[in-house]
């Protein structure tokens, strides 16, 4: 057993795997999150906030 995780992380230990793994599921989930964020922001800023009474103009 190595002294710490640095020692574990030798090139042959992890080599190659990085290229093989494409986190397509993650990309999908995060794209959905992105869409939710944009839609929610547009609603809350442009409709809810700017549509309220007594907007501060000075």
């Amino acid at each position: 057993m190595g002294r710490n995780e640095t020692a574990h992380a030798s090139a042959e230990d992890v080599g190659g795997e990085t290229e093989e793994f494409d986190p397509i599921g993650t990309l999908t989930l995060i794209a959905i999150y992105f869409a939710i964020l944009v839609v929610s922001w547009v609603y809350i800023y442009y409709i809810e906030f700017l549509g309220r009474d007594l907007v501060i103009v000075g």
Binding site: V38, W41, Y45, Y46, F49, L50, V55, I56, V57, G58
Partner: peptide, 18 residues
């Protein structure tokens, strides 16, 4: 986009900060 929205709010509808 968020920074742009806030900037739009300031120059479009003219929302000013205390």
């Amino acid at each position: 986009f968020l920074l742009g929205s806030v900037t739009y709010g300031a120059v479009g509808p003219g929302v000013a900060m205390v």
